[in-house]
Design a protein around this nucleic acid. Structure first.
Length: 564
RNA sequence: AACCUGGUGGUGUAAUUGGUAACACAACUGGUUUUGGUCCAGUCAUUUCAGGUUCAAGUCCUGGCCGGGUUGCCA
């Protein structure tokens, strides 16, 4: 972690004050994922906050799995979450915990509440409970079981634990206030029966505590000072405090809420991301189009870029939507610094040099990073038959088109100046080959007469090219706010993945795993794990800015308007 | 309609706690360039509205307007 973070958001302000007033000598936070899915960018915001403030203030951050619902949680999610947090750059040291570590204590505390007359075993059906809860305008109605003797509830609760009852037959409720304007306080359920084995406790339990009954108490057990969560738990804070107040817990943690992250063209709902995976809309949780940390990792994001992004968007209590271009910009910025430059032709078109000596191959020297000569150079073969991008040749070119067109001279980067002399088409009118002549005096990409050649394009020698499958990704959704006008699935971008057969310069054949490169004039890429002995596969992490595309669009618009 | 909460450019954050509204992204202009990349320069808000306090208000007070959350045996 090299980014310095001198933010002064409300969380850091509170912590500073608590430290200054002596309320706390040191701070302890926690990141509490439920292992029912994979972590995504939204979680990255929370992770950077939880671990970030702990580090900044010399405190500690625990990783605690909120595993209170065995019907949704699985061990492989636990493993993936740990890997993702580590990859993002954070370390919980010895402090790995699970809410399930506290099941026995939680059970004891539930009994305590019953004994104190603050909880009771409910026997109404879920439906009746819902009916009697009232609504936002009307108070609820007390349960007929609300005032049963503590002894009776205690006995029933013990038999719930012993497995005497079916799922849903009975439930333990806190006795608070059925008329509270805060629905969360209308005698909330705190223990339910679930005959299901748990990833960690196996079949030891058939009753499980609800989130509300587990979270604050877990915080207290671990000595958490600042329990940071998202705004949807704001209404739960009074309940969080109620348990802490009425139970003999060892500490008094406080909950603070911040707004979750919304990103344009992105879905940050674990439930909906799971749906995409389950329905096969994407390949997997780590599909490079997914906003999951594993997907972003596979896509080629650097942890540093994600951390920088999280620091930039800050922490607030107001809901907002961050423009995805901010993330992309920070990513490019990070990659621009470190990525070595390479040449790769994504949509190949053959160029034949008519005056090139038959069979001749020449090595040319190319810089690994134009801005950083210290990163060295490499040699690339240049020959009489080359691949260039189809988009770098136009039979009829618009104004300001600096690339190859009949009669125009163009620089082949690090190679020679070539002038287009002609081209061939097939029966469908598609260009099949471009013919050029080269200037032998222009080796390396310049001439002694210093004449101006505006256009520079990249290329790969046909005889030496490495074939590769390259996956070009676009936003997973085509709408800025997926689902804003109905079903979010309708907003999926049908063109979020384009696969092309590309031609790569030779050294890309055995690029070290995990290395990130820039394909010049195109974007940043990394090798995908699908690569094998006979196939090299690359993922496009993010495209370069393309001001020509913008210009051309504008020119086209002007032309269209002029035609009217 | 009840309760809780919030409101600074197109977007996300700042503003020495009452003292020149700053930074980044996006957009638009230019310049440099062997990547139409990078880099550099410039343009783009009288802080939701109306009052009030004050020499001075984004910041304090009153009222309005608008937004988000809440009626799982999910977290």
């Amino acid at each position: 972690m090299t980014e310095k973070e001198s933010a002064t958001d409300f969380v850091r302000t509170i912590i500073t004050e608590d430290l200054a007033s002596g309320k706390h000598k040191s701070i302890v936070t926690r990141f509490p994922p439920e292992p029912n899915g994979y972590l995504h960018v939204g979680h990255a915001k929370a992770i950077c906050l939880d671990f970030g403030v702990a580090a900044e203030f010399g405190g500690r951050c625990n990783l605690r799995f909120d595993d209170t619902n065995p019907s949704k949680e699985e061990q492989h999610y636990i493993d993936a979450i740990k890997e993702d947090v580590r990859w993002l750059g954070f370390d919980w040291g010895e402090h790995l915990y699970h809410a399930s570590d506290y099941f026995e204590q939680l059970y004891e505390w539930a009994c305590h509440l019953i004994r104190e007359g603050l909880a009771y075993v409910e026997e109404q059906t879920a439906e009746d409970m819902r009916k009697n809860r009232g609504d936002l305008q009307n108070p609820g109605v007390n349960s007929p079981y609300r005032d049963r003797p503590a002894e009776e509830s205690l006995d029933l609760f013990a038999r719930m634990r012993a497995g005497e009852f079916e799922d849903g037959a009975k439930i333990l409720r806190a006795k608070i206030d059925m008329a509270s304007p805060n629905m969360v306080l209308r005698d909330p359920a705190i223990y339910r029966i679930q005959h299901r084995s748990h990833p960690r406790t196996g079949d030891a339990w058939c009753i499980y505590p609800m989130y509300d009954f587990a979270h604050g108490q877990s915080d207290a057990i671990e000595g958490i000072t600042h329990s940071l969560c998202t705004m949807e738990f704001e209404n739960h804070r009074p309940l969080y405090d109620w348990f802490v107040e009425h139970l003999p817990v060892p500490a008094v943690p406080r909950q603070y809420e911040f707004a979750r992250l919304n990103l344009t063209y992105t879905m940050t709902s674990k439930r909906k991301l799971k749906m995409l995976v389950d329905e096969g809309r994407v390949e997997s949780w780590d599909d490079p189009r997914m906003p999951t940390l594993s997907g972003m990792r596979r896509r080629g994001f650097t942890p540093a870029a994600i951390r920088k992004f999280c620091a930039t968007i800050g922490i607030k209590r107001t809901e907002g939507t961050v423009d995805i271009s901010l993330l992309e910009s920070i990513l490019r910025d990070d990659l621009n610094d470190v990525a070595h430059r390479r040449m790769a032709v994504l949509r190949p078109l053959k160029v034949v040099i008519e005056n090139w000596p038959e069979g001749h191959v020449e090595m040319v020297e190319a810089m690994n990073h134009p801005g950083k000569p210290e990163l060295g150079t490499r040699e690339i073969p240049f020959s009489g038959e080359l691949w260039i991008e189809r988009d770098d040749f136009r039979e009829e070119a618009p104004r300001k088109y600096f690339r190859l067109k009949p009669g125009q001279e163009v620089r082949f980067r690090y190679g020679y100046y070539l002038t287009c002399t002609g081209f061939d088409k097939d029966d469908n009118g598609e260009i099949t080959e471009v013919r050029c002549t080269y200037d032998p005096e222009s080796k390396g990409g310049n001439t002694e007469d210093g004449r101006k050649v505006k256009g520079t394009i990249h290329w790969v020698s046909a005889a030496h090219a490495v074939d590769s499958e390259v996956r070009l990704y676009d936003h997973l959704f085509r709408e800025p706010i997926p689902g804003a006008n109905g079903d979010f699935l309708d907003d999926l971008n049908p063109d979020s993945l384009e696969v092309v057969n590309a031609k790569l310069e030779p050294c890309l054949a055995d690029i070290p795993a995990g290395e990130l490169v820039q394909f010049e004039r195109s974007g940043y890429f990394c090798q995908d794990r699908d690569s094998n002995a006979d196939k090299v596969v690359f993922n496009r992490t993010v495209a370069l800015r393309d001001s020509w595309a913008k210009l051309e669009k504008k020119l086209n618009q002007q032309a269209a308007e002029g035609a009217k």
